[in-house]
Design a protein around this nucleic acid. Sequence first.
DNA 1: TAGATTGTTAATCGATTAACAATC
DNA 2: TAGATTGTTAATCGATTAACAATC
Lengths: 213, 213
Amino acid sequence: MIRMGNSKNIPDIVIGRLPIYLRALNLLIAEQREYTSSHELGERLGISSAQIRKDLSHFGEFGKQGTGYNIAYLHEQIRQILHVDREWPMAVVGAGDLGRALVHYRGFVPRGFRVVCVFDNDPARIGEQIAGLTVQPMSELASQIAAHRIQVAMIAVPLEAAQEVATQLVEAGVEAILNYAPITISVPDGVQVQYIDPVAHLQHMTYYLTPKS
Amino acid sequence: MIRMGNSKNIPDIVIGRLPIYLRALNLLIAEQREYTSSHELGERLGISSAQIRKDLSHFGEFGKQGTGYNIAYLHEQIRQILHVDREWPMAVVGAGDLGRALVHYRGFVPRGFRVVCVFDNDPARIGEQIAGLTVQPMSELASQIAAHRIQVAMIAVPLEAAQEVATQLVEAGVEAILNYAPITISVPDGVQVQYIDPVAHLQHMTYYLTPKS
DNA sequence: TAGATTGTTAATCGATTAACAATC
DNA sequence: TAGATTGTTAATCGATTAACAATC
């Protein structure tokens, strides 16, 4: 297989840190700062400065000796690397409390995403309006995803339904799934999956705690 | 410093996988299965069987050669290791869409957690009922956390308020924080913090996608 | 110039995997 | 017994860190 000269295989763990750097840069921009350094970023994030420089070096040279990184420039570069220098339309499946909160969430648009449709299989919910979107039946899923050219979806259904929904999403052409149901789903190679399981994080922390009561 | 004989320092990354194992065991229990193997667990989770055996070996010997692991027994053991063989009372700060969804979420109780109070600083929200709980003003935070002996809290406020809320929680005695605001917060040593940032996960995935539109 | 900070190399550290004796 | 699977060791693999020449 031919490999492009500039597309080395960058560790996934490095990719996973770029959004964190971007988040920190957002804040620095809000503070009206112009320059930062790997040392300052590291301090704020609890990461070593060497790691930040090493991570960024996979993609190019974004800093200047002596002065550090121009915040706006580095921000824009990372946005391009992560492909969030545009707006990704997204589908939400599940219009329960969580799905509703996702549709309402104001934090997607400023960071490159927009919920453009929401689905549910409960007749009581279909037709309901959420933040200007109409809850659609699952029978509309494939056609809507095609019509909106949706590549990214979020699953907010009960765990029993999550695998079936994932399968439908992939069949409809979705290539990246953020799954809120506490179950590992199986998808074909090449389809991206990430998980959000608050209880897993809580359990991780309680390992270190001694119960009071 | 004196170190107990049986409390070796177990890598944090191993602790982070235990909740995933627990989640898989929950499913196997629901399927009425009695025994499993490191191979089967690994298949389901996309993890090598060797890693699962290695991880578990940090805590004891839970399996039997030839037959694998008794599911109910392993489940109970991991629950004890993670200290979720009890119910942790939790506070939610922020009664917006997300906070509301967290208070309503049915997935906490079966896995060791229960939201017992919710706070907001918006007079329009204070007094509101959410799933049987009354939204309380921030001025009540310290006394309520003490009264309920709360050690775990979730932050669901806008990012501008997150650091201040975290500081108040720690002062009130909270030892573990799950932060939904997209900002790295600073807390004293010994206080656990975990982050949930859906956008970071989405951006991680879009790195691997080629935009269609 | 002197001070600061990058990008990169090499060394260190830690995590994952392969392999297998033990044994159910 | 034969087959399966554990727990563990040693080897491999990969990620992090320390250090520094280059240079703004």
